[in-house]
Simulated assay, not measured.
Amino acid sequence: MLTRPFIAGAVIVATIAALAIGTYVYDHGRQETIAKGVTIGGVDVGGLKRAAAEAKLRAEILDPLNQAVVVDHGNKRWTLSAREAKVATNLTATVDEALLRSREGNMVQRAWRGVTGESIDAKLEPKVTFSDAAIIRMLDRVRRSIDRPAMNATVKYTLQGPKTTPSHDGLAVDATSLHRKIKTALVAPDAKRRFSAATRHVQPKVTEAAIEQQAATMLVVDREHFELRLYKNLKLAKTYSVAIGAVGRDTPEGLYHIQNKAVNPAWTKPYSDWVPKDEQGTVVPGGTAANPLKARWLGIFNGAGIHGVDPSEYGSIGHAASHGCVRMRIADVEELYPRVPVGAPILIA
C-alpha cells in the first residue's frame, strides 16, 4: 500500500517533469521568435518571427534605401540609383543575430522572459555598403555642369590705348558637403534623399581695380603719325608730337615698360658706327651743351628712351630723324616726366 509521503513525492516529481516538458516545448516553439526589446536599425522586431521581421525590415529599411538619391541645382537634376551605387544590406544576417541574442540564457530564463514579456534591450544595426566610386562619378557630373572658373580682368595695350575686360566671379560646387549628404542618404533609410547642390562663388585673382591700377598710366608711340600719347586712368590725357628713329635706326617696335628716369641725365656715347671710335663709351655730363639728352630721360629699352632735344633741333619733331630714341620738345618732356612712373607700359607701334 502506497504511503502518503510517497504519493506526495510522486506528485511533486510529476509536476516538475510536466513543468520541464512544458518549458521545453514552450522554448522550442519560440526558436524562430525574436525576443522583446530587440531593434534592428531602429525598427522594433521584438515578438516577430523571422519571416515577419524580414518583411518589416524590407518595408522600413530596404525599400527606402532602394530609392534613388536626387541632386538638383536650378532646373538641372542628377540621379544616383541604388543599383548604380551598389547599395546592399545584410538584413538576413542581422535577423540571424537577433534570433541568437533572443536565445541568450538558459531555457528557464528564456521561458520566463517569454511569459513575463521581459525585454533584453538589444539594439542591432544592419551593415549597409555602397560604392564610393559611384558617388565620385556623380559628383563629377554635377561639377562639370555647374562649375565655372573665375575670369580675371585683363588689359590689352593697343594704339588706341588700354582696352580692358572686366572680371567675373566663378562658381564651384561644395563637393565635400555634397559627398557627405549622398553617403548619408545611401545608408540611412530616414535620410533626406533629394537636396540641392550647395555652391560658392570663386573670386578672380585679378580684379578690375587691380587692372585699372596696373594701367593707370600708359604711353603709346605712334610711329606713323609721330605722336606720343599719354593715357591716365584708361583715358587719353595728352598727345605730344615727337621725332622717332631714322630709317635703319628705328625706334624699337613692341611693348616695353619705362625702365628708369633721370633729370638732366648724363649721356654715355654708344658703341655705334655713328660715333667716332675714340669717343665711344665717353660720358658727357648732364645739363651741358654737348649732351643731346636735354632736360629729362625716360629709359625704354637697350639704350633707347624718351628725352628732350635742343631747341635748334625742334625741326626734327614730326620726322624719323633720331638714332632710335623718342625726341620731344623740352617743355613737353618736362610736363610728361612727373606723370609717368617707372614701370609704366609703353607701346611702340
Results as ranks from 00 to 15, higher is better:
residue 141 R to F: 01
residue 173 V to N: 12
residue 160 Q to M: 14
residue 151 M to F: 08
residue 178 L to G: 03
residue 180 R to S: 12
residue 151 M to V: 01
residue 189 P to E: 03
residue 179 H to C: 11
residue 192 K to M: 05
residue 171 L to R: 12
residue 140 D to V: 13
residue 147 D to G: 02
residue 176 T to C: 08
residue 200 R to Y: 11
residue 194 R to S: 15
residue 171 L to A: 09
residue 142 V to M: 08
residue 169 D to Q: 07
residue 152 N to Q: 02
residue 190 D to Q: 04
residue 162 P to W: 03
residue 154 T to S: 09
residue 177 S to Y: 06
residue 150 A to R: 04
residue 165 T to E: 11
residue 178 L to D: 12
residue 141 R to K: 14
residue 176 T to Q: 13
residue 141 R to C: 06
residue 181 K to L: 13
residue 166 P to H: 11
residue 142 V to D: 11
residue 169 D to S: 08
residue 144 R to T: 04
residue 177 S to Q: 13
residue 149 P to E: 06
residue 197 A to D: 12
residue 153 A to L: 01
residue 153 A to Y: 05
residue 148 R to F: 04
residue 155 V to L: 04
residue 200 R to V: 02
residue 145 S to Q: 12
residue 163 K to V: 15
residue 144 R to P: 08
residue 194 R to P: 10
residue 158 T to Y: 01
residue 196 S to Q: 13
residue 150 A to E: 01
residue 180 R to F: 10
residue 188 A to S: 10
residue 143 R to G: 06
residue 184 T to H: 10
residue 150 A to H: 00
residue 192 K to L: 09
residue 167 S to L: 00
residue 191 A to L: 03
residue 153 A to N: 01
residue 198 A to Y: 13
residue 172 A to P: 04
residue 199 T to L: 00
residue 163 K to Y: 05
residue 161 G to R: 05
residue 142 V to R: 11
residue 190 D to I: 01
residue 185 A to S: 06
residue 163 K to P: 07
residue 145 S to I: 03
residue 180 R to T: 14
residue 198 A to R: 13
residue 153 A to S: 04
residue 158 T to K: 01
residue 152 N to T: 11
residue 170 G to A: 02
residue 186 L to A: 04
residue 197 A to M: 13
residue 170 G to V: 03
residue 194 R to N: 13
residue 205 K to M: 14
residue 159 L to S: 09
residue 184 T to P: 00
residue 182 I to Y: 07
residue 173 V to R: 10
residue 201 H to S: 15
residue 164 T to H: 06
residue 201 H to T: 15
residue 176 T to F: 05
residue 145 S to M: 10
residue 194 R to C: 02
residue 186 L to Y: 11
residue 150 A to C: 00
residue 195 F to S: 10
residue 167 S to D: 12
residue 186 L to R: 11
residue 171 L to W: 06
residue 150 A to D: 02
residue 163 K to D: 15
residue 170 G to K: 02
residue 140 D to R: 15
residue 143 R to V: 06
residue 201 H to K: 14
residue 202 V to C: 00
residue 200 R to E: 07
residue 151 M to W: 07
residue 151 M to A: 09
residue 149 P to K: 09
residue 178 L to H: 14
residue 203 Q to S: 13
residue 185 A to D: 03
residue 172 A to N: 10
residue 183 K to I: 08
residue 167 S to R: 04
residue 150 A to K: 04
residue 173 V to M: 12
residue 203 Q to T: 10
residue 161 G to W: 01
residue 143 R to M: 08
residue 152 N to W: 04
residue 182 I to L: 01
residue 157 Y to R: 05
residue 160 Q to P: 00
residue 176 T to E: 14
residue 158 T to G: 00
residue 172 A to L: 02
residue 199 T to N: 08
residue 179 H to Y: 13
residue 151 M to H: 12
residue 167 S to M: 09
residue 184 T to D: 05
residue 204 P to W: 13
residue 174 D to F: 09
residue 195 F to A: 05
residue 150 A to I: 09
residue 158 T to V: 08
residue 165 T to M: 11
residue 155 V to S: 07
residue 155 V to H: 01
residue 154 T to E: 07
residue 200 R to L: 09
residue 202 V to S: 02
residue 203 Q to H: 14
residue 153 A to H: 05
residue 170 G to R: 07
residue 169 D to P: 02
residue 189 P to G: 03
residue 148 R to I: 00
residue 190 D to R: 05
residue 205 K to T: 12
residue 185 A to G: 00
residue 161 G to I: 06
residue 145 S to A: 14
residue 180 R to Q: 14
residue 164 T to V: 15
residue 141 R to N: 09
residue 164 T to C: 00
residue 148 R to P: 06
